[in-house]
Amino acid sequence: MPKVTMRVNGREVSGEVEGRTLLVQFLREGLGLTGTHVGCDTSQCGACTVHVNGLQVKSCTTFALDVDGAEVTTIEGMANADGSLSVIQQAFQDHHGLQCGFCTPGMVMAAAALLKENPKPTEAQIRHHLEGNICRCTGYHNIVKAVLAASGQDVSAIAAE
């Protein structure tokens, strides 16, 4: 079987895969990084979102072999070096931006990609950016609020709503 090598969360890893092995399968089954989830099979839900070379991608819609040599970041690599929650993760906790937690890794990865491009997004820009991430629990209210808060914007008016 072909071999694939990549840096995942700063660590060089490699493994044997099939041509049809998806990146998400390599992460979950090959590396045991089960934080990245699979919520659909039509590339719509975004629970599998990771970063490849800094770009937001769906790991269920990318072959492991196609990212050979790439730099991959998953939810497991998002906390601060000392293990504390990053600003985005902390904002999700502070503003109750998650319930069952299943879509959460994808949401955090999507939010991180947005804030890198656009450090002070508007509510509309956040909602637009999250188009490819489906959440069934929160009605998105607190997710959008958490992303606004993570970008340093005042959300006290929303809190009152």
């Binding site: 979950r28 934080g35 989830h37 999700f92 109750h96």
Partner: peptide, 19 residues
């Protein structure tokens, strides 16, 4: 108060059946 379960879900260390 903030949810204690969030820490595992936000760091990818939850344990769902398929995990």
């Amino acid at each position: 108060i903030k949810r204690r379960e969030d820490v595992r879900f936000l760091t990818g260390t939850g344990r769902y059946t398929d995990d």
